[in-house]
């Protein structure tokens, strides 16, 4: 399995997909640089660049970059091989399909995790370091917690979109609709419906989550009427790990049971 992971990582690094991923990862870094360059005019508007890190972590990484990277990587795990008509060559190798899928998923997760980690570490450094090493050190715990949440989420989303990629003809659209449609719509909604999202469990683990919750009067009124149970952090971690395992299992199952006919591609 180790060899396979190394092989898929090497294969992934040489692909244009990783280049596009790297460019995506540069988006927040560019924003952090702009914030730092214009820190004085921003300060006059009452915006402290360093204090924006949790907000950037939440809006830009948790709700934008991480799911988008997962859609990009996850949906291509099986679909790329089908589109490139290389799946039969992989499947005829004397390797169990479960090992093949898990290696691909792990390699994809590792590649995107490194890009995501570099991106958020750069943003954190750009925003916090000008305040001094003490500020950077002081925020390190929060940074590591956000990074941990992102990596957990990345694993669950990558496996989920990988399963969609094995099942559907248009996994990217389905992934975008799920993440930016369904999850955005219900994750802040009171009641039990949010338990059917992945992002709810990430919200449970995200530091300072209260400041991002909706101040909308209608939502507050609904929260008052519909009592919502919270999720304990340990349970949220357990559910995320379980979801990753279930979706990876689903991917394996689809690959084992489905017949991919290349003339239909």
């Amino acid at each position: 399995m180790g060899f396979l992971i190394k092989f898929f990582i090497r294969d992934g690094i040489q692909s244009r997909r990783t280049l596009w991923l790297g460019i995506l990862g540069l988006f927040p870094v560019g924003l952090a640089l702009i914030l730092r360059l214009f820190s004085s005019p921003l300060a006059r508007q009452g915006i402290e660049a360093a204090a924006l890190f949790p907000r950037i972590g939440f809006l830009l990484f948790l709700h934008f970059l991480m799911p988008l990277v997962a859609v990009f990587i996850g949906s291509g795990l099986i679909a790329d091989e089908v589109e490139g008509r290389t799946l039969p060559y992989l499947l005829v190798r004397p390797i169990p399909r479960a090992v093949l899928v898990m290696s691909k998923a792990l390699a994809g997760w590792l590649t995107s995790a490194v890009i995501l980690a570099i991106s958020i570490a750069a943003v954190h450094a750009i925003l916090a370091l000008p305040g001094g090493l003490d500020v950077w050190w002081g925020d390190l715990g929060e940074f590591l917690r956000i990074l941990g949440v992102l990596l957990l989420g990345l694993a669950a989303y990558t496996a989920f979109f990988g399963m969609l990629g094995a099942l559907l003809k248009h996994p990217v659209l389905a992934g975008l609709l799920f993440t930016f449609g369904w999850e955005n719509m219900v994750s802040f909604f009171p009641g039990n419906v949010k338990f059917f999202t992945i992002v709810h469990y990430l919200h449970t683990l995200f530091p300072h989550m209260r400041q991002f919750q909706s101040q909308n009067i209608q939502t507050q009124l609904l929260s008052f009427i519909i009592k919502t149970r919270g999720t304990a952090p340990a349970l949220a971690i357990g559910i995320l790990v379980a979801l990753t395992a279930v979706f990876t299992g689903g991917m394996v199952l689809v690959l084992m049971t489905r017949e991919y006919r290349l003339d239909e591609v």
Partner: peptide, 26 residues
């Protein structure tokens, strides 16, 4: 690739909207 075009299109439309949310005072 279709996938790259799709993801980048979505990113180009969504990313600035998030920046607008972060810098809502400007």
């Amino acid at each position: 690739s279709t996938r790259s075009a799709a993801v980048f299109y979505f990113a180009i439309l969504t990313f600035p909207e998030i920046i607008r949310g972060i810098l809502s005072r400007i």
